[in-house]
Design a protein around this nucleic acid. Structure first.
Lengths: 156, 156
DNA sequence: TTAAAAGTTGAAGTATACTTTAAGTTAATC
DNA sequence: GATTAACTTAAAGTATACTTCAACTTTTAA
């Protein structure tokens, strides 16, 4: 089964221009072309395209995806290098998840605070030691700033 | 306590050029300036900067952060609009977390597969119905593609 | 077989988020 | 008081990931 760039575009929801761009950047070395230069996608290419979309959405740069794909093309001798790349990506994913979960709590705090403000007609004050407000984190930085200011005074 | 752009930059790890860029884009309307035009950061600004960094890292665009900050500046009458913005951001965060968690399992599958390949000296074949491999997802798309191909044949 | 539809490349254009540079002003230090 | 360090703005430049355009070729279909 062979598919045109249009068909692949519609089914996977990736614009033809993007597929051509990917090809130009070396992300699609597996896609075959007719002697006239027309791309002919095949069933097996779908798995590659899904992998590319996953890696991209996880934050991998196009140039790094190109590198990963080229390693795949080189065969089993590159498994170790590919393993390290994916391991590194996974660490990034873990960090992203951790950060997002924490941020979610902060946003939740703000949402809760806004709701309280509405309920009390603007007369609500959150406890300063409320976890996940930004104020507590700010305090740490402000301390650092005060120390810097102190040192400047000493120097004079 | 007043701090220079340098000091703030060092303590928060944001380059002065970025802080100036933020200011230009309307993210720092709260930062005061001397009559000569020199920015004078104060303790209270830290909380704002932390909020900005959080929103940015959660995927909010600079222009949207500017809009949010400007709503904050307008006072309590804009709480509803701010609430909706943060609620929307939270939905995005939830989607991101969901996607990343799923992707993590896929990457894990690939890592496991690479390990098996190394252990078996390249003679390992994963079960096709292994969850979180990309092959299973690909099958769904390939089915769609086959249906499209069928319809084309019918039309001839 | 011929016109329209779809494909191709290469180059330029767009969006986003900065960074760098240039030219000048202000603040701090000797 | 002068030199230097730090600050300012405006504009141009960079990186990334595409999209759009122009000019042309190939395929498809009447």
């Amino acid at each position: 089964m062979k598919y045109s760039i249009q068909t692949i575009s519609k089914v996977l929801g990736i614009p033809p221009s993007t597929l051509r761009y990917y090809d130009k950047e070396g992300l699609l070395p597996f896609v075959e072309k007719t002697s006239a230069g027309v791309r002919q996608f095949k069933d097996a290419d779908i798995e590659w395209l899904l992998t590319i979309e996953c890696l991209k959405q996880c934050g991998m740069k196009i140039s790094d995806i190109a590198k990963y794909i080229s390693l795949c093309e080189k065969g089993n001798s590159t498994i170790n290098e590919r393993y390290l790349m994916l391991q590194n990506l996974e660490r990034n994913i873990n960090e992203q998840i951790k950060f997002l979960k924490n941020s979610k709590k902060r946003i939740d705090f703000k949402l809760w605070f806004y709701q309280k403000l509405v309920e009390t007609d603007g007369n609500f004050m959150a406890e300063t030691n409320e976890s996940y407000s930004f104020r507590n984190d700010a305090v740490d930085y402000i301390e650092k700033l005060h120390k810097i200011a102190e040192n400047k005074n000493k120097a004079e």
